[in-house]
Amino acid sequence: MKTYIYLIIFLLTTPLFSQPSGKEILNLIDKNLTARTRIMTAKMIINGARGSRTIEFKTWAEGEDRAFTEYTNPAREKGTKMLKVEDKLWIFSPSTDRIIQITGQMLRQSVMGSDLSYEDMMEDPDLTSHYSASVVASDTVQDRKCWVLQLNALAEGEAYEVRKIWVDQERYVPLREELYGKSGKLLKRTQLSEVTRIQGRWFPMKIVYKDMLKAGDGTQFIIVTIKLDEIIPENTFSKASLK
């Protein structure tokens, strides 16, 4: 999910025009997303049939293609590690001492029972090169004025054909994202809040994911600490580090 987080982790300089073009907003987003590395501790609150569960983990990420996550809590998941390199995903579980590649059907399963699938996690966040963007409206979300940005996939093969992003007009933080199918059906909604100043950037610290087709309360993602542009040793992103 850290890769997904990239999407949200960005800063914007105050625009010179009252309404920047979609492309400009996206460029600003992408430009600001490219913090070279991110190290964060976070927790995920998952609402299931048996009440909610909290999973804690630490993530090291570099660029868009490489991420390493280690789960720290609860005890059952502790020590489980996940490595994403480009479009491949491996999981290591200490009890089995095995590295398993997640492919096919498994990619569609939910991660730890959340409203996110492995596929959602794997999604390429580089919106500029995959989507065309235009500002379609302005709106108010969480008492903040937002541009509503509509993104249409440039080529076949994106998981979501259409995205809509509500971007804070002042801070340039997205406060809401909606994912649509080809036919225009709303599939998923993400709400971002608790925007905080981190290393001089505005950062949403709480994200709620919701599968709109399913009944339920969705999954909360809360960033506890985050450090940007720290140096991460190269071997972190190798399969050897999983064991």
């Binding site: 996939a153 076949e156 093969g157 994106e158 998981a159 979501y160 054909e161 994912l179 199918g181 080809k182 036919s183 059906k185 599939l187 087709l213």
Partner: peptide
């Protein structure tokens, strides 16, 4: 009823 599927390229879609 809502049906969700993926096309050959993996793009999600849903419709009634």
């Amino acid at each position: 009823v809502t049906v969700r599927w993926r096309d050959a390229n993996g793009t999600f879609d849903a419709t009634e």
